[in-house]
Amino acid sequence: MSTLTAAPTQARVAQSSGRGLSRRRKDTIAALVFLSPQLVGLAAFMVGPLVFALVLAFSDWDGFGAATFAGFGNFADVLSNPRIQRSVLNTVWFTALQVPGLMISSFVFAVLMQKAGKMTSVYRLCFVAPVVTSSVAVAAIWLWLFNPDISPLSSALRSIGIQSPDWLQDPNFVIPAFAIVAIWQGLGYQLVMFMAGLQSIGSSFLEAAELDGCSGWQKLVHVTIPLLSPTILFLSITSIIGSFQIFDYIYVFMDSNAPEAARTIVYEIVQIAFREFNFGQASALAFLLLLSLLGITALQLAVQKRWVHYAE
């Protein structure tokens, strides 16, 4: 603050020099100045390519030569292709497993870790290790864990009499397998977010609740969860976006010939663009994905008033 008050005259001079302009125009100019670096980036590296892709969505283009206008043909092809329909189901199924699984488990661990005292940072480091483990190592380890012939997981299961499934080969288990890996790897990030949220609630609310005779469970339901609801909203928006774009795991586990049961929307986009050279269809599919995500996010924000509480 002292630095601010140190130079009032200077600032006043600056203010008076702009006397001719209305407050509104001055604000607009100021906003543009502050926004300019990001606006240049947005325009050159995002909107520009996006327009190009939008044009492609209405064209036939194989990556080379001239594109020809295709109307809504690509969209019709995408919507009627059974392989893509399957990939949509797979993606939704993956999201339905991964997002709640991830959020519930990270929330539970975050609550438990609040009580872990000095060991917290050690545990947290362990939970974050998967975040920084490279996808190559992740694939190597999980290919081994999912292989029913050599996996220690399946020998452990077998010793208690359970026949473990052939995760990556069985069409019913391959998406759950990806969800398990995604939860395992994403847990650290969400855990850190939840722990931060919990710490910001502080103990005063909980102590007050305790004085009111609330049990541990009641505290959780009536105090902790409502106070964490903004964090929950933030994480659910960002993790649904991330989960709908799931692609890397399938690619590192199965390369470019994953079976239909394992293919997701973005996997199909890459496949159609770079393996089948059909950029028009790939762009059309990508725009449909973009629109659905916008819809889902808008819906989440529309219903948030009913359950999200802000501590004001």
Binding site: M46, L50, Q245, I269, A282, L290
Partner: peptide
């Protein structure tokens, strides 16, 4: 909205 654009598209 740009957060929802898959990188492979652009």
């Amino acid at each position: 909205a740009t957060m929802m654009v898959p990188a492979q598209l652009t």
